Computed example of a mutant assay.
Amino acid sequence: MLAVNYTNLRENMKAYMDKVTDDYETMIVTRKDNKNVVMISEEAYNNLIENIYVMDNKHNYDWLMESKAQLENGNTKTHELVEVNEDE
């Protein structure tokens, strides 16, 4: 996680935005009176929102954790892929 003050961010906006998006960095923009903000990429934001949605629903979360445990314990099956014609 990077930290930059508002003045420095303003002077180097493109470089910092590129750092956030290209390097998947999270940046704290420091401001007076500790009214800081956090800058993240749109991709990171969308991922965060999706995780909150999945984790907020107990049924989804439990299903996900059960699936994860099955995978970690080697309780998996392999299936051949079936080709489907476009007209089906």
Rank of each mutant, 00 (worst) to 15 (best):
I40G: 05
M1A: 11
E88M: 03
E50Y: 03
N34R: 13
S67L: 09
K58G: 00
M65V: 14
N85C: 05
S67R: 15
V82K: 08
L9C: 01
Y24E: 15
N85S: 10
K58L: 12
I40A: 01
S67T: 13
K58W: 09
D22F: 06
N73K: 07
S67K: 15
M39I: 15
T78P: 04
D18E: 12
E50R: 11
D56W: 14
N73D: 14
N75S: 08
N60K: 15
Y53I: 13
Y45I: 03
V84Q: 06
I49K: 05
K14L: 13
N51L: 11
V84F: 08
M65F: 13
N47H: 09
D22Y: 05
E80C: 08
N46I: 11
E88Q: 05
D62W: 07
L81Q: 13
N36L: 04
I40M: 03
E42Q: 09
R31P: 00
I49H: 04
L64M: 14
V37A: 10
Y16E: 04
I28N: 04
V20L: 01
E25S: 07
K77F: 13
M13G: 01
Y61M: 11
N46D: 02
V20Q: 00
K14C: 13
D33A: 02
E83W: 07
L9G: 03
K68G: 00
D87R: 06
W63R: 15
D23K: 11
L48C: 09
D22Q: 05
R10I: 08
H59M: 00
S67H: 12
Y6P: 01
E43R: 13
K19G: 00
D23Q: 15
E83H: 10
A69K: 11
K19L: 15
A3E: 13
D87H: 10
I40Q: 03
V37P: 02
N51I: 05
A15K: 15
K35F: 02
E88L: 01
V4L: 03
T26V: 15
L71C: 06
K14Y: 06
S41T: 08
M13H: 11
M1R: 02
Y6G: 04
K58P: 00
S67D: 12
L71A: 14
N60V: 00
R10L: 12
K58S: 08
M17N: 11
T7R: 07
E86C: 08
A69N: 13
T76C: 14
E83P: 04
D62R: 11
N46M: 05
Y45Q: 04
N36T: 00
T30W: 01
E88C: 02
